[in-house]
Nucleic acid binder design. Structure first.
Lengths: 223, 223
DNA sequence: GTCTATAGATGGATAGAC
DNA sequence: GTCTATCCATCTATAGAC
């Protein structure tokens, strides 16, 4: 922004905007390739080639391949958890601090499902997050392990909504519904589509949300 | 078995038994390391070192690292699917070909849960299978994609047990319960244990089976 | 800041002796 | 069949020119 536009500008366009553009291009290319092909199957060369930047960019802008991975991971999980927290907060407001099970689950399900919509740019980010859960580095696993404060709020809300259920049952059932969410990967959708002979349509995320809520709500309200 | 025991036998013990022993040692070491650390994070050198055999063994006995991986994958998934099929068959026998939802789900859940028991040697095999679903090679993904005949039998049984539910709902709910199963990874158990403050005990697989059945049965019987 | 060239490490696979 | 030595490809990371 403070750069003077000189006659040389076209030949040496290395200002802040270019800086940010290069970094963003690396970030986007890495997220996309990691989400599609797995973390270990994508090299720094693949990323820089896809981004159209030179090989050294990853190390210059992010320090290392693993640091780049972790930065993508942290940004996307942060965004997703904020969306979930906001929806849970709104549900609290609507129900005087004690929302029903279905609305709590909706706050947990809706953000990742919206992201997974084929029409949504975030689709690739959602696949990245899911992949990070199983293929992530030790650093990511530690972050997931220690960052349970966000889930703790959901557990507390569920306890309040279903006070006659033993606390350990709350946690196990939360584990079950998270399994439902994490199973929404491309390959699993494809397999289901194949198994059902084409009956299941991946594109209908609003319908899928309702299906998941019907199933999970009934499961949570079981004795 | 047909080998003559000669005076040289002790110096040249390269008979069928040694052959099989080396191959089995490689198989076991590979399965264990892959299950614990991921497919791409384990080298042929790691495997042969763990097995106490020489570096060339993997290629001699299995052809390549990927072929070894696939052989483990095929054997274990075959064993698991046969256990499930047998339990489904027994449930059919008990109920004149039309078992209730809960017993169908039990045939789906019980084998992987028994395998996952900390007291069971197969615990590591179960983690291997779960990992293969997300980290597997293209060959494994194709095999998973095309081998749905086993799941198709479960889908048919569920349709018969719940005829008033739309077929597409059967498939989606089958997808949901499979998500529950596949979420039973070491890291997820650890995270849950951390989140619940130690309330959830991983070792109690019989209890977990009942919890999963309570939840999934209610979900399946929802309108 | 960008880019080329390359260091340095590690991986899978194999030839050839035994 | 087993084992050592080695080839060759590939990767991350970095030094140094511009």
């Amino acid at each position: 922004m403070t750069d003077q536009i000189s006659p040389d500008a076209l030949e040496v366009p290395a200002g802040e905007e270019t800086h940010a553009a290069t970094k963003a291009a690396v970030f986007a290319a890495a997220e996309r390739l990691f989400a599609l092909h797995g973390f270990q199957n994508v090299s720094v060369r693949d990323i820089t080639a896809e981004a159209g930047v030179n090989l050294a960019s990853v190390n210059y802008h992010f320090g290392s391949k693993d640091a780049l991975l972790f930065e993508i991971f942290r940004r996307r999980t942060g965004e997703l958890n904020r969306e979930r927290a906001r929806m849970l907060h709104e549900a609290n407001d609507r129900h005087a601090g004690k929302p029903p099970v279905r609305e709590i689950l909706e706050a947990l399900f809706a953000p990742p499902l919206r992201w997974a919509d084929p029409a949504n740019d975030r689709r690739i980010s959602m696949q990245f997050i899911i992949r990070a859960r199983s293929e992530g580095t030790a650093q990511m696993r530690d972050a997931l392990q220690n960052d349970v404060s966000h889930l703790a709020r959901f557990a507390e809300a569920l306890k309040a909504a279903h006070p006659d259920l033993a606390q350990e049952s709350i946690y196990w059932r939360l584990h079950f519904v998270l399994g439902m969410v994490h199973n929404n990967r491309f390959v699993e959708f494809d397999r289901l589509h194949h198994l059902s002979g084409g009956l299941t349509r991946e594109g209908d995320v609003a319908g899928l949300l309702n299906r998941m809520l019907d199933f999970a709500e009934a499961g949570f309200l079981a004795p």
